[in-house]
């Protein structure tokens, strides 16, 4: 009983500290960029470290990836160019996925056999997305504003996908098509809550690959991890159980975001003094968050994150339109 209370207290502590870090960093940064207060230079990398620490602490409890929070928040409230925000976002998404996926692969929850056909098309379109994203900001004088408006619009789409898509814990796959059977898309893992090994088969691999053309493109263009899209495709199209889909999504991010990260690096769109604190903050924060998520996942965190995403989306669109002198 005492340990349960202690665990509950720990979860609330993580929530309070995580939210305090995110909101205080946004508040101070807004005050600094509006010249309300003057701050020392070291504040910028430190602010990114604490922001990503806060995001990392709460994201696993909210069931979202860190990249999808980081890119909209920093592009809306921090003064960096979109190129550096997206480069940083990709590095964070890939580090997070690379550190989390090995343990899922070893338990059978992560399924490379299912991931590979999808990432081959996803990686190709992610490269195209990264090239187009960098081309727009470099070739057009107002390119960064177009990207900001598009990011804001995409955020509303992401929110709609998150809210409206139904998650099926164990989808029933009645028929496995020829292509999926040739690929051998099946897997199994030991499910402690059921006390047995869960086996599953996936289907509609061709349709899944088609969906990944779009998913990869958005990931490369906006520097997002795209876990929000991977999971519904795996769960609802391929019929993969939700737990396996969430874990396999991380394996997918390790591959789809790799080539775009190299492209951003080759274009000089990654600044180490901004990227390193952000990645390390997320690296530490997500460990605390993952541990807390094992104890509890309060729904209120998800709603708070959705509210932050809506606010960041509105800010992105507003700043984009303002930059184009449309408002």
């Amino acid at each position: 009983m005492a340990s349960q209370v202690a665990r509950q207290a720990w979860v609330y502590l993580v929530i309070v500290v995580g939210l305090a870090l995110i909101f205080s960093m946004i508040g101070i940064t807004q005050a600094a960029t509006s010249h309300v207060i003057s701050i020392p230079l070291w504040y910028w990398p430190v602010s990114l470290f604490f922001l990503t620490l806060g995001i990392g602490m709460l994201a696993p409890m909210a069931g979202v990836g860190g990249g999808v929070m980081f890119v909209p928040i920093t592009s809306a409230f921090w003064p960096f160019h979109m190129d550096f925000v997206r480069g940083c976002g990709l590095c964070m998404a890939i580090t997070n996925a690379l550190t989390s996926s090995p343990k899922f692969l070893r338990t059978g929850l992560g399924n490379i056999r299912v991931a590979l056909p999808l990432v081959t098309v996803g990686t190709g379109s992610a490269i195209a997305g990264a090239c187009l994203g960098l081309y727009i900001t470099q070739a057009f004088p107002y390119g960064k504003y177009y990207i900001k408006i598009a990011l804001g619009a995409i955020l509303f789409f992401i929110l709609a996908v998150m809210v409206l898509s139904k998650r099926v814990e164990f989808p029933e796959v009645k028929y496995v098509d020829k292509f999926s059977r040739w690929l051998g898309l099946r897997g199994y893992w030991y499910e402690p809550s059921l006390g047995r090994v869960v086996e599953y088969h996936c289907t509609r691999a061709g349709l899944g690959m088609l969906a990944f053309v779009g998913v990869g493109f958005l990931a490369g263009m906006f520097g997002l991890g795209a876990g929000w899209a991977n999971v519904p495709v795996l769960n609802l199209i391929l019929g993969m159980p939700i737990k396996a889909a969430t874990s396999t999504s991380l394996c997918i991010i390790t591959m789809t975001d790799a080539a775009p990260a190299a492209i951003y690096l080759a274009k000089g769109a990654i600044l180490p003094l901004l990227m390193i604190p952000a990645v390390l903050g997320m690296y530490i924060g997500s460990r605390i968050g993952a541990w807390s998520a094992v104890i509890a996942r309060p729904r209120v965190i998800k709603y708070i994150f959705f509210a932050i995403l809506v606010f960041a989306a509105i800010m992105d669109i507003y700043k984009g339109l303002h930059g184009l002198h449309m408002i």
Binding site: L41, W44, P79, H81, Q138, G143, K144, K267, G268, L273
Partner: peptide, 14 residues
Amino acid sequence: LAEIVKYWKLAATK
């Protein structure tokens, strides 16, 4: 860091 802060509003190439 001072140089980054000075020019970080520019696109990466610029």
